[in-house]
Design a protein around this nucleic acid. Structure first.
Length: 464
RNA sequence: UCCCCGAUAGCUCAAUUGGUAGAGCGAGCGGCUGUUAACCGCUAGGUUCUAGGUUCGAGUCCUAGUCGGGGAGCCA
């Protein structure tokens, strides 16, 4: 079939062409007087095309009059200007052929408003709805923009492993990867499970981050990034967490925290610009139906200068705020959601980059500052979603790194190769991690992260 | 994991102090119309999440569980 994408059909400058479109029926309005209107969507764009089918078509009585939502059809005919206002062009069908029937009584997706909760139980069919089609296109645009941004700046795309043996980065609980029979695992003489007999000859897990691996490539190739799925076995039940999600992690050699923050700010602006440019119609929809401020918010961020304050300044501001905090504000305590939201939503009203956190509440790989109390860490906070980026300048001094591991009761043996990067030609370097789903969530205004990934994995939920 | 809230037709929701379970959408049939997730009429569609309990009587009250949602923690 030589089909024309509906997005192309709707945007041809001068109608008049004969063409064929194919897709899934959204609605059918029948005129017993002699024709019917079929709205057809093929996912190539937000809008459906209107097909006008006349009673003279050979299958008008037998098939066309019985079309229901969800049916797949192909239609050929002439594209003409529409006499009505709601659409610029429409297809006058010379032929409508039924491809796949769809029992209207059984089909779960109706031309009406469904709850997102219900649509989650129909994850295989929900991309046929306006909202989830739009989310899929925005997610694609964000992914492409991520690659555009880094590729255009000479960053090398590095594929870090999904299966990993490092098990203690402090980034959350891991999923174990094994081929052993859980009912009867091999055991050693002491009766303990013997992972030496497992597939890899040692315990292995799904990665929680590609950072440590990608650092090695930064310390050879300069500027790099990894972009792939990551896994956290945390029992987190919130609209902002998934057990499986995608993360982008750039890493720059010969770079400090300021360069890192600059990169993060440019990066977010680039991504949101691309979304507005490439998904205009989808974004109009989100602005109409999901969050009436979303386009304004994205434009505001693109034009804004991100606020940058140190953790110490943030604590001061929170302590002086005329407000009761549920969690005590005190230097040394981590900032809570209520604090982060206050800063980004009420004080600055733009994204905020908070830097220089206390060393005690951050992982071993972050660079210890000269004050001996803080590390060169940064979080980028955005309104509603909260933390969207976390990053740091890495500790490049071997002695300090080993000392920090000791303080956190980590075994340097487990990180021998990571330490090697400091042992052989060490350089200052920095990077960050950005959650893809949180970015899509923020860009679309979707309230629940489970609705911006095709098949969400959360505690007790892995259907599909 | 903790705290709150919820579960009624395929879907979205009503149902007064505990007293005969309703509507819209969707579906089928009919009418009408260059319509715009059209409109009008008729029809079909229910083990009120599960298991117990209180009561003459439970969708409604109590207990436990399951599932879902919101908030918190953990984080991206």
């Amino acid at each position: 079939m030589n089909r024309t994408l509906i997005t192309d059909a709707l945007t041809v400058p001068a109608p008049g062409a004969d063409l064929t479109v194919a897709g899934w029926v959204r609605t059918v309005r029948i005129s017993k007087g002699g024709f019917c209107f079929i709205h057809l969507n093929d996912g190539s764009c937000f809008d459906s095309i209107q097909i006008v089918a006349d009673k003279d078509l050979h299958n008008y009585e037998t098939e066309i009059l019985h079309l229901t939502a969800g049916t797949s059809i192909a239609a050929s005919g002439k594209l003409v200007e529409s006499p009505a206002k709601a659409q610029r062009v429409e297809l006058h069908a010379a032929e409508v052929s039924l491809i796949g029937t769809c029992d209207g009584e059984q089909y779960p997706i109706q031309p009406k408003r469904h709850s997102f909760e219900f649509l989650r139980t129909q994850a295989h069919l929900r991309p046929r709805t306006n909202t989830f089609g739009a989310v899929a296109r925005v997610r694609n645009a964000v992914s492409a923009a991520i690659h555009d941004f880094f590729q255009s700046r000479g960053f090398l795309y590095v594929h870090t492993p999904i299966i990993t043996a490092s098990d203690c980065e402090g980034a959350g609980t891991l999923f174990r990867v094994t081929t052993m029979d859980p009912a009867e695992p091999p055991r050693d003489d002491a009766g303990n499970v013997d992972f030496a007999q497992d597939f890899f000859g040692r315990p292995t897990y799904l990665t929680v981050s590609g950072q440590l691996d990608v650092e090695a490539y930064a310390c050879a190739l300069g500027n790099v990034y990894t972009f792939g799925p990551t896994f956290r076995a945390e029992n987190s039940n919130t609209p902002r967490h998934l057990a499986e999600f995608w993360m982008v992690e750039p890493e720059m050699a010969f770079a400090d925290l300021t360069a890192n923050a600059d990169l993060a700010e440019d990066f977010l602006k680039h991504v949101f610009t691309a979304v507005l440019d490439r998904c205009g119609r989808d974004m109009e929809f989100f602005n109409e139906r999901i969050d009436e401020t979303i386009i304004e918010t994205l434009k505001g961020i693109i034009d804004s200068q991100f606020a940058r304050i140190s953790y110490t300044e943030a604590v001061d501001r929170l302590a002086q705020a005329d407000r009761k905090w549920e969690y005590t504000v005190e230097w040394g305590n981590d900032l809570q959601t209520e604090h982060e939201r206050y800063l980004t939503e009420e004080v600055f009203k733009v994204p905020v980059i908070i830097t220089d956190y206390p060393a005690a509440i951050k992982p071993f790989y972050m660079r210890l500052s000269d004050d001996g109390k803080t590390v060169a860490a940064m979080d980028v906070l955005v309104p509603k979603v909260g933390e969207i980026i976390g990053g740091s300048q890495r500790e490049e001094r071997l002695d300090v790194l080993v000392q920090r591991m000791g303080q956190l009761a980590l075994n340097p043996q487990d990180y021998w190769w990571y330490a090697d990067l400091r042992r052989y030609g060490t350089v200052p370097h920095a990077g960050f991690g950005l959650g893809l789903e949180r970015t899509v969530q923020f860009a679309t205004g979707m309230a629940n992260i489970r609705d911006v990934i095709p098949y969400p994995r959360t505690p007790r939920s892995a259907e599909f």
